[in-house]
Design a protein around this nucleic acid. Structure first.
Lengths: 67, 67
DNA sequence: GCTAAATGCAATATATATATTGCAAAAATA
DNA sequence: TATTTTTGCAATATATATATTGCATTTAGC
């Protein structure tokens, strides 16, 4: 449920939720909820976050189904 | 502007916009506008589309900045 | 050329992502 | 322990993704 990849990438960059939010023109709440897996963010926001954290979409938001 | 990767992946699968829309529980218009680059789709929709077309997020929605 | 399927486009309605504000709890640091 | 920073959470407001409907245009098959 939680997006650990995102949270880890942010922490590795030494950024708080507020700092990442400022860098991508979002709010702290939005970042927090995405990390919690409670939001369905827009592609543009995902792209901004990934580029800010020097990751790709797949790095942060892709997962393989374990069916 | 247009998302050629998406359009090509859909056509290679032999699917019309309507058929892809049905498979991901969206509408034809939504698919058409995403292909035209005029929509900012949600992550969940991007994930459904990618999995339906046997591609990843990066395959269809990632691009490197040519800064 | 004719016909049907596929796509584009526009207007309105609805659902939901995101912003805003405020406060409480937790975590870090002195 | 005291203080500051960070994070969680809830209520309301706003912006926008998506649905719905309808019609025009293009493309593909006959």
């Amino acid at each position: 449920m939680e997006n650990m990849n995102l949270k880890l990438a942010r922490v590795e960059k030494g950024l708080s939720q507020q700092e990442l939010a400022d860098l991508v023109n979002a709010t702290r709440q939005t970042i927090g909820l995405i990390e919690k897996g409670k939001y369905n963010p827009s592609l543009n926001l995902c792209l901004k976050i990934a580029k800010t954290l020097d990751r790709t979409l797949n790095d942060l938001f892709w997962y393989e189904d374990k069916n």
